[in-house]
Design a protein around this nucleic acid. Structure first.
Lengths: 341, 341
DNA sequence: CCTGGCACTCCACAACAACGAGTGCCAGTC
DNA sequence: GACTGGCACTCGTTGTTGTGGAGTGCCAGG
């Protein structure tokens, strides 16, 4: 059975009212607050059908209806109207972000901004190493036989690793090693580098072999394989804003999920294109503790490249149109900002 | 009026029972669970005195007693018995921490460990820049006129800053600048460096003046004055473990406080000696949102130097002896670990 | 100074009633 | 056939009332 136009209108109205009031919505208040041009009895019939189809749900016999995850899904996919940000909001985003001085600052500002705009929990992934390209690699002698490897990426991210060399390395050798590595890796994506790194050792002259072997294994192990994906979180306090009903069962589970970086990374870090917006509603989330939440996420990056993800997490009854608009806009501005540097 | 020995025993018993059961404790159950060697009537009289003195409080006429902040304070200062960690726990701490590969890893492991041991929210401050000494400074040319300044401290912390120079700088000049800066600052505390930095410009030869001026102002502004104190947080989910009674009013206020780095830094970052343990109970906290919590914090660092703070935050009815032992032990092991590097 | 005893307080909990929002269904209307 | 008004019904919410019991304060006696 397909749903006709009016039933969809009713569903939309139910979702909107429930999001606004956070209380089960009845047929009577529906016809009062929306121009449905039919009586409450008709709406009741429609609601009965919607319930049968699984879009809304009745907590108990004599209560109003609440959207189900399936209902939110339909709402998001087909019913929600875009709710563009106000010019003031856009200006605020631009102003705030443009004041950033370095990558840490950018990420920090972004995550707080997003939390504030949406009044939800915001998550921003640092530009992923795998998706960045190497801009420059530096070798610094700390002590004889002890080097520091500093890598700077095109996204402004800087990583450093201490390297214990097999033996002391002379300063001219350090320079040589450095230029060899730079020549090979500069401009390349880190994810493409394993094969390149392999050739580094082969091409090195005999006396640099041991040193280069150590360096390349560090590069491979700590920068390519065990990539440290970092992220930043803000707005946790927003979770406690709603009523206890928002997270039936545990709230605590949600907090626990927020502490698991792996979970969050999976949640926001798997987007392929910056224009794709991903929305997971309630049960659609794989992670147990997040079954009562919804996640709106997208990728960001300079131009059409994605270097990381960002998103927002909140109760399933969140304001989807507003959240979507905010996430989109913030991602776009961050992308532009990264492109500038 | 001073409290005699038995009244103190009663207070201790009240605190211990309340912490264990989380329910107001009455005179009868007290004599049952502790060897007080007096009757419940006597205990009642003692309790009346304790209440008059402000150490315990009665939620309502016919209820048991609950410790006040003042009561906890007395308990902590004079009544609590040390509760040493089990050998197993000590071994676990040592094992876990010794696996750390770099500073980030140390801090990360420490904060999670602390949260797990105490079942509270744990906070660890990264070694403070002001309290660290400079081990090495490096200058890297990214592009003509654009340098990166990398600073490595004795605690393993690495900071980098992009510097836009007034004009292109030749490679030999970069080396010269680097050695001048290193010579002047290496081994010195960052907090002592402003005067040293000032002399850098004066002593530089004329052609290096402009470059050195820029560098020293960056050093001064971003590393000395606007020191980025970083911290790491874990165990937020533990806040949701207790009953709703734990944080009368708002829980949300606590979450908000946890997002304010400044507040947290003030809380755990002001310790002078690593042996000093600081405990703030309820109202003793300056920050509004933390008036329902207690904070146990201490400094840590290699040897007797303090380079940062760490601590634990939880409801006022937390297990003080256990928490104190855990915080002390973890701080000590972290200190030893830092001393090794 | 301590104790047993006793009257008193008052919260927690259960039982109960009244209310009303909301529903489903049906007969009637367009 | 689709919509509407009307009506009986359900059931959670709210308020009232009553009772049990944990806990207290106080007093008289050892």
């Amino acid at each position: 059975m397909s749903l006709d136009e009016r039933k969809l209108d009713v569903l939309r109205a139910v979702v909107e009212d429930y999001i606004a009031t956070q209380e089960p919505v009845g047929s009577k208040s529906l016809v009062e607050r929306h121009q449905l041009r039919v009586s409450s009895a008709t709406v009741r019939n429609d609601m009965a059908v919607l319930e049968e189809e699984g879009y809304i749900h009745q907590p108990h016999t004599s209560a109003g209806r609440v959207p189900t995850d399936k209902g939110y899904r339909l709402f998001v996919d087909r019913l929600s109207r875009v709710k563009p940000l106000s010019p003031a909001e856009r200006r605020a985003i631009q102003r705030l972000l443009s004041g950033a001085v370095d990558l840490d600052d950018i990420v920090h500002r972004t995550v707080r901004l997003l939390a504030q705009l949406t009044r939800q929990v915001a998550v921003v992934q640092y530009p992923s190493l795998a998706r960045s390209t190497v801009r420059h690699l530096e070798l610094v002698t700390l002590a004889p036989g002890r080097l520091m490897l500093v890598m700077i990426t095109n996204t402004g991210r800087v990583e450093q690793r201490l390297v214990d060399m097999p033996g002391p390395v002379g300063e001219e050798d350090v320079l040589d090693l450095r230029s060899r590595i730079n020549e090979k890796l500069s401009g390349h994506r880190l994810s493409d580098s394993p094969t390149l790194i392999a050739t580094l050792v082969d091409e090195a002259p005999a006396q640099l072999r041991p040193a280069m072997t150590t360096l390349s294994s560090v590069l491979l192990e700590t920068l390519v394989e065990r990539q440290e994906e970092r992220l930043s979180l803000a707005g946790t306090a927003n979770l406690a804003r709603g009523t206890a009903l928002d997270f039936p069962g545990s709230f605590r589970g949600v907090l626990e999920a927020l502490e698991e970086e792996v979970v969050l990374l999976k949640l926001i870090g798997e987007v392929e294109s910056p224009t794709t917006l991903r929305i997971r509603i309630g049960d659609e989330n794989e992670y147990e503790g997040l079954r009562t939440t919804s996640v709106v996420s997208t990728g960001y990056g300079p131009g059409s490249v994605v270097v990381g993800g960002l998103g927002v997490l909140g109760p399933t009854r969140m304001d989807y149109p507003g959240t979507i608009a905010a996430v989109r806009a913030v991602a776009r501005y961050v992308g532009e900002l990264l492109a500038q540097n």
